[in-house]
Amino acid sequence: MFFGLLGFWLCVDFPESWSSRLFKADEMKFLQLRVKYQDGPVSPDEEFRWSAFWEAVKDWKTYVNYTLATMVKSLGYSSIKAQALTAPPYVFAFFCVIAIAIYSDKYRCRARSLLISYAVGTTGIVILWPCLYHQNLAGVSYFALFLVVAGYNMQAPAVGSWLGTNVRNPAKRAAAMGWQSTFGQLLGGTIGANIFITKEAPTYKSGFIILLVLVMVGGVGATIANWYCLRASNLKKDKIPLEELEGKYTEQQLSEMGEYSPYFRIQDDN
């Protein structure tokens, strides 16, 4: 909670609000102009509008992206130990999230990062589930939890950045990312908290089946579908002859089109 509160001061804002103590005047000007005009000569409108929110809600790109203490307790540990042993997997996940975020940003590979994340988490599930039938494999089960927690937390940076980089208008981008997070938390939290039924402990057969189906369809399937649709959008724009576009739109019109501009190329992890 403490570090979460620090986010109010640590999260980076647009360069216009930065203190110039760390940068020279020309460096600060460069940073501001680079952000403002990164996608064209006319900067997008940064004022929030409800129309931008509803546009984000209707956009398909917005949607194409454990009760751990209970799981640990089922391995044979006491409630107090279960709560204590919940922490190490999340510490491990923290470093994995940082690593995948750096990798994703360096190579601009959002889809690949997501598939890697789901692969790590699913590997943990494949190891964990059979082990729960054997109490003498508690150590292996606990190791598998590290992979599960890490894998399914690693996907967050790629999901958010993939959507953010492909929505040009700042108001729509903020609305899309906020709605995506809300939508995901509501459905994910509701499902995750109710599929591991107490009477099925310690193997949770129904929970694991539902989880694997959701990961394959809603995780891996959605990632591949999103990559394919974004790539198809770029290929469609590439087929438009440049001479056909010359003089057809004003710079203001192109700016208002956002990512639908014929000149805008979506980052699709080719």
Rank of each mutant, 00 (worst) to 15 (best):
W179R: 00
V42Q: 00
M177G: 06
Y107F: 15
A69Q: 15
W50A: 14
F14I: 08
G207Y: 06
M28K: 01
S104R: 10
P262E: 09
I240N: 08
I197M: 15
L128C: 07
Q38F: 07
D13G: 07
W54M: 03
K237P: 00
M154D: 14
K237I: 05
A119K: 01
V64Q: 15
N194R: 04
A150N: 07
V213D: 02
S20F: 01
M257Y: 02
V35H: 11
W9M: 05
P88K: 08
Y228R: 15
W227I: 03
A25Q: 14
Q155I: 01
I100T: 13
C109I: 06
S74C: 04
E200D: 14
E251V: 06
F23I: 00
P202F: 00
T182V: 03
G184M: 08
K24P: 00
Y37M: 02
I191G: 08
G184F: 15
F94S: 13
P170V: 00
Y107E: 12
K24V: 05
I102M: 09
R108D: 14
I240L: 07
L33C: 04
K106V: 05
L163Q: 06
K58C: 06
V213N: 07
N153M: 03
A138T: 12
G121Q: 06
A171R: 03
S255V: 10
R231K: 12
V126M: 13
V140T: 13
M154E: 08
L75C: 12
E27I: 09
P44H: 01
Q83I: 12
C96E: 10
P130M: 01
K237L: 12
L163A: 04
N136G: 10
G121F: 08
F3V: 03
R168G: 11
T70D: 13
V91E: 04
P170Q: 00
R231G: 09
C11H: 06
E246F: 14
V220D: 02
P41L: 08
E16P: 03
N65I: 00
C11A: 11
Q135S: 07
Y90Q: 13
Y118Q: 06
